[in-house]
């Protein structure tokens, strides 16, 4: 389902080139629950972003759902991302000007779904994550745990085949973190693939497979 071969990624900071990934080969099967672990700066988030089509590799091949992503145009990448991949970030990344339900509905908006459908599906998803009563609230009116649950609702509203979570519990207390993990695992039970970047051994332990990233390589 996800196949990375010889993937490198180098960032340029002024005149200096900073390698983030140095040749990654990785294969993740459909329905897997994979934890990416490793020290800070090892390249875990970069790997996650490459899988999520959020940026392009410097070299190597990323195949997603059997498709070579290098051949895709920006619009095709966006469509693929919007319809099949759900993102959950450590910093939640909700749009502050939008209400909770509008944040959840955002991927549907870009799929050009009718406004009524957007609202109905968003509200239903908020109900599933236990936030039906917070639908009309703005992110600034929610707690950290609630914000992350809204973010999970947003990731799951499209019924994704792949969920990419970048330290989803990093900014949360233990109880809220557990709720968030349970929600993500529910999605896996529904057939989705979950790739989760974490520093937390407990979170990693709940994954079906742990992939260790060190110094830009899969160890």
């Amino acid at each position: 389902m996800i196949e990375l071969q010889g993937v490198t990624k180098t960032y340029r900071k002024g005149r200096v080139e900073v390698p983030a990934l140095r040749g990654v080969d990785l294969c993740i099967e459909e329905g897997e629950h994979v934890a990416l672990v490793g020290p800070s700066g090892a390249g875990k988030s970069t790997l996650l972003y490459l899988i999520g089509l959020m940026e392009e590799p410097t070299s190597g091949s990323v195949r997603l759902f059997g498709e070579e992503t290098a051949r895709l145009t920006d619009a095709e990448r966006s469509r693929l991302r919007g319809r099949t991949i759900g993102f959950v970030f450590q910093a939640f990344n909700l749009v502050p000007q939008l209400k909770a339900w509008q944040n959840v509905a955002l991927p549907l908006h870009y799929q050009r779904r009718p406004r009524r459908e957007q609202r109905e599906r968003a509200l239903a998803m908020l109900e599933r994550v236990g936030l039906a009563d917070r639908a009309e609230h703005y992110p600034s009116e929610l707690s950290g745990g609630e914000e992350q649950r809204v973010a999970i609702a947003r990731a799951m509203v499209i019924e994704p085949r792949l969920i990419l979570a970048d330290e989803p519990t990093g900014n949360l207390d233990r109880a809220s973190g557990r709720v968030v993990l349970e929600l993500l695992e529910t999605a896996v039970e529904g057939g989705a693939t979950l790739v989760i970047v974490t520093h937390d051994p407990e979170v990693a332990a709940r994954a079906g497979r742990v992939v260790r990233v060190v110094d830009g390589r899969v160890a």
């Binding site: 959020m54 920006d74 990448r77 991302r81 990344n93 991927p107 870009y110």
Partner: peptide, 16 residues
């Protein structure tokens, strides 16, 4: 710019 990044993450294309 960050908000635009979020929108891209949930499926907005550059044209959108």
């Amino acid at each position: 710019i960050r908000e635009l990044g979020i929108r891209r993450a949930v499926g907005a294309s550059a044209a959108d």
